[in-house]
Simulated assay, not measured.
Amino acid sequence: MGLSPRSLFFFLFILFIDSVTCSSCPIDFSYVQTFPWDSSPCQDPTDKSCCQTLLSLFGIGLAQYLKQTSMFYFPNETSSSSCLSDFQTKLQSLSFPRSLVSECLGNSTEFVVNPSFCAGIATTQDWIKKVGPTSLLDSSCNGDMTGLTRCGLCVEAGFRVSAQLASLDKNSTKCFYYAVFYAAGIVNEFGPEDPRTAVCILGLTLDSSATNKSKNLSKDSLYKWVFGSLGALVGVLMTTGLIIVYKKWHKKNQQKELHEEYVTGVKARVLPNTGAKWFSLAELEQATSGFPQRNMIGQGGYGVVFKGILSDGTVVAVKQILDIDSKGDEEFVNEVGIISNIRHRNLLSLNK
């Protein structure tokens, strides 16, 4: 028995609607099954780093979406929900539980364009209006991100640009993620699906076998880079040390009277909003043994990071800012707020 023309019409219409619904996600998540990401955190129910891993993995797709459409997030909840469902399906094909996506990424509204997200930015055109045609990301996040120095400069650039954006609107959220997606999807020439970009900018950990293979392939070039940079690094460290000594002396003589007033003002703005713990300069000097070069563990364009041990035995990283201008206080407050609300493998959390 055949279908009447009217029944056939409705049947085809339903198929069409179903097809549109199933294909409403603009991101191809097939990379989830082929990219050499380290899935071990999500195989251990007690490993809290699984959610950070999935956020970074989903971020590859968002950065690629930004590159293709100039949009940071999805235009509506239907697209967002469909993409989360597709992402979940790809994870299930790798034998991960269905609940991981909802537990780690939240609901679909988290990825829909919202005026409260980062000073109202929705597209790359909005970004350029707020940040300008070029920024620190363009000079720090392009090319091969292999190596702690290159990666550190890029992450710090993202941190400073996100603080700049946050200062435009005190209620802004997600500015650091905007900077990450822009750096990976727009700035970096290799794109977000390149392991070098994903590891540094998106904070994704690679599978150990892929990491070992990459190390073997780049061993010779790494040796050349290390020995070639050693002389320059020693000179930079010595110069940095002299600059630190001079600035510490200069600050103690010029800003001693203003210090207490500054501390009181910043405490009033930072602590109620973040719950962060305030340490005095004397405590930090004691923890780092006076900021000696032997305790220096990292360096960026605007500061030096030292390893320290608090009186209770907690190991911490202490950043000493070198570039302090007229906007230094405002940027510091913004940066503290950002660190308190983001998750990224290449950034330490605040001590609370």
Rank of each mutant, 00 (worst) to 15 (best):
A163D: 03
S135T: 04
C22Y: 14
A198H: 10
V336I: 13
L202M: 06
N212L: 14
E261R: 10
K213S: 11
E261V: 13
P192D: 08
K256V: 14
K256F: 14
V180Q: 13
T69I: 06
L347N: 03
K307N: 10
Q255A: 13
A282L: 12
S7P: 02
P75C: 08
M145A: 03
T239K: 12
K213T: 15
I338F: 06
S214L: 12
L271A: 01
V131A: 07
T288V: 01
I121M: 02
G275W: 08
I324E: 05
F74P: 00
E189G: 07
D86C: 12
I60R: 04
V112A: 04
L217C: 07
A198Y: 03
C118S: 00
C154E: 05
S40I: 09
S214E: 07
D323C: 06
S30T: 15
D220E: 15
V304H: 00
S7I: 08
S80M: 09
Y65S: 04
T197D: 01
C175Q: 11
C22V: 11
K319I: 06
R6M: 00
G228I: 04
G2R: 15
D207M: 01
S167D: 09
L217N: 10
N273V: 14
Y65K: 06
G147I: 09
V245A: 13
V234E: 01
G228D: 04
G143I: 01
M1G: 15
P97G: 09
G59M: 04
C154D: 02
W249P: 02
K213D: 13
Y223N: 13
P97L: 09
T274D: 04
P272E: 02
S209I: 11
E261I: 12
A210C: 08
V226I: 15
A179F: 05
S116I: 01
T53Q: 03
Q88C: 13
E189K: 05
K267P: 03
K213A: 08
T274V: 01
N341I: 03
L66A: 11
S24W: 04
K256Y: 07
F13S: 09
T211L: 10
S116R: 12
E330V: 10
D323S: 03
T21K: 15
L84G: 00
P115M: 09
F96T: 02
L8Y: 10
F13M: 05
D86N: 13
A166C: 08
S326A: 15
S24G: 02
Y223V: 11
R343A: 14
I339Q: 08
V113W: 05
R6T: 14
S135H: 09
M1P: 08
N107M: 04
N114C: 06
S19G: 07
P192Y: 03
I121A: 04
T134V: 12
E77I: 11
E156F: 14
L137H: 04
S209N: 13
T264S: 09
D194H: 08
S80I: 08
V112G: 07
P97T: 08
C200T: 03
V101E: 11
F29T: 07
D323L: 08
E285M: 12
S79A: 11
I342L: 02
Q43P: 10
K247Q: 15
S70C: 09
Y182R: 09
L66I: 00
S140Y: 00
F291D: 06
T53N: 00
T314P: 00
V199A: 11
Y177C: 01
T314M: 11
H259Y: 07
N346I: 05
G143K: 07
